[in-house]
Design a protein around this nucleic acid. Sequence first.
DNA 1: TGTACATCAGTGAACGCGCGTTCACTGATGTAC
DNA 2: TGTACATCAGTGAACGCGCGTTCACTGATGTAC
Lengths: 193, 193
Amino acid sequence: MARYTAEHKDTTREKIVRAAAKEFRSKGWAGATIPGIMETAGLTVGGFYKHFESKAELFEEMFGQTLRNSFDRATALKEQVPDQDWWPAVAESYLDPAHRDNLRGGCVMAALASDMPRADRETRTVFEKELLRYTDQLADGTTDTSAHSDAWAFQAMMLGGLIMARGVESEQTANEILDACRRAIRDHFQQEA
Amino acid sequence: MARYTAEHKDTTREKIVRAAAKEFRSKGWAGATIPGIMETAGLTVGGFYKHFESKAELFEEMFGQTLRNSFDRATALKEQVPDQDWWPAVAESYLDPAHRDNLRGGCVMAALASDMPRADRETRTVFEKELLRYTDQLADGTTDTSAHSDAWAFQAMMLGGLIMARGVESEQTANEILDACRRAIRDHFQQEA
DNA sequence: TGTACATCAGTGAACGCGCGTTCACTGATGTAC
DNA sequence: TGTACATCAGTGAACGCGCGTTCACTGATGTAC
């Protein structure tokens, strides 16, 4: 019935979402444009609305999908180190100068977090859902309240540290911030996971 | 020589900066507009360029000034509590639901942090300068490296905690995040200042 | 003191631009027969 | 198998809108004399 198979359309949709992830992270909600995203995806503007109803809908899908991928990658680290080193290992890679310098490809939460209070209900709900899921995993699936509490504090320090390091002008100060947060996580969260 | 005294012009300029602080924090860099800011200040668009060269210049001045005020208020708390309770006291007021709900009037860093990597060099330099000054004060003016390191980690947890709490949809999750960060600060940073 | 003039903070309409979105169209492919 | 037709993902020009910025103007005040 269709010119292309459903699979082809899904592939294009995914191409748009991946292009959007790059554009939104590097330029922000308002700085990223639909013409720009479509160009990055190797397409032209007009086709956009064959895939999404609006810029907001694309943002929501991009945000949820990219956030989930990034949390899943952190969770996967668990298999590669002794249990008590898991959180510090996550912090090592998250609070790394290479990640700091990779705004376009890095953590979508850090790139767009301060726009969340201004986002629509759907996007905020997706954000909360993914955060809760990741926090449960960090707390190792237990319902232990203090493990959950630690998991929140751990995430807060990682997020705040990366955002501050990305915001300051000098690389020296940025490194100082990353070092300080990695150290605090080693000191305070090593045995807790 | 002038129609009004220099003092009058300075007063108007300050009115614009204060209006800009509200508008930028609640709507973000792109969401806040010059017509909107001037209206909030009780003026009309056209006069804006008698005071600032561009939106970016206003942003820079607003950001530096508002950041400094907010850090100074945190520093002033030191006189009101025993030394070892200072950091937790700062955290109590920063990680408070009332502050979380006061985007328009609250911490300018939390409201705009993830736009910093995309800001111009001047703004990032101002951001760094104020952050360094505040960090020195948190570390109590010493050059003790570990006090500075703790001060960075402390700030990172506060910033990340507030931003996450503001981003999630449900108030319950938001409170959980704030509680967790306040608790972690009490547990890990109480004796260090 | 009184008056004519110069100043310039503030006004509000207008400008060009790029945005999100719409729309008439195209043309490669799947389907019907 | 071959062929005419229907489909619809993708194109690219166009739309209205609100933005940052400009500009000719106003009118209350300070200054000169």
